[in-house]
């Protein structure tokens, strides 16, 4: 996995958080992990196809997920219902779209598959034998993470 590919997703996340939630995202220490596991309360999985093939998994704790949707909608959110999970899916989708745009600057043409929202902890989403990269991220409303696995195709 190349740093520029990983960065395309990180900068897209920063961009979308700034625009949609008016807040900064700070990167923690990166970690290589064996399995892609949805270790948070609300998780969104994006499939990547094209010059890069792989998956991006966003994991949000319950409180942060509710707060994000509260900021966007101006309404108090009590539980992760269809509205909250759809909104989270859309945010991840927009991040994926922006990352795909960023990747074109590195001559990489990718498509993003529609987001899958997974509610509930510890469901293993294993699709590759290779290890993936876990990026812990900090914001003023909580900590979340992005799990990235990308392989270059035919290059």
């Amino acid at each position: 996995m190349k740093a520029e590919h990983i960065n395309a997703f990180y900068t897209a996340t920063q961009e979308v958080f700034r625009l949609m939630l008016d807040m900064e995202v700070e990167k923690g220490n990166l970690e290589l992990v064996e399995d892609m596991v949805s270790s948070n309360d609300a998780n969104v999985l994006l499939g990547i196809t094209g010059d890069l093939k792989g998956s991006i998994l966003f994991g949000f704790p319950n409180k942060m997920a509710l707060e994000m949707v509260k900021i966007m909608s101006g309404m108090e959110m009590k539980k992760i219902d269809t509205f909250v999970s759809s909104a989270l899916g859309e945010v991840a989708n927009i991040i994926g779209g922006n990352a795909a745009t960023n990747l074109t600057n590195h001559d990489c043409i990718c498509d993003i598959a529609p987001p899958q929202v997974i509610i509930g902890k510890y469901k293993s989403i294993s699709m590759a034998s290779e290890r993936s990269l876990l990026i812990p991220l900090k914001t003023e409303i909580g900590e979340f993470d992005i799990n990235i696995f990308l392989a270059e195709m035919g290059k």
Binding site: L19, M20, M72, S73, T82, F83, S86, E90
Partner: peptide
Amino acid sequence: TEEKIQELGARLMTWLIMHVGK
């Protein structure tokens, strides 16, 4: 159905924020 309405609501909200903002 409530589910479809919530889904549409979320889609509208995120699209508008992003479209107007960017």
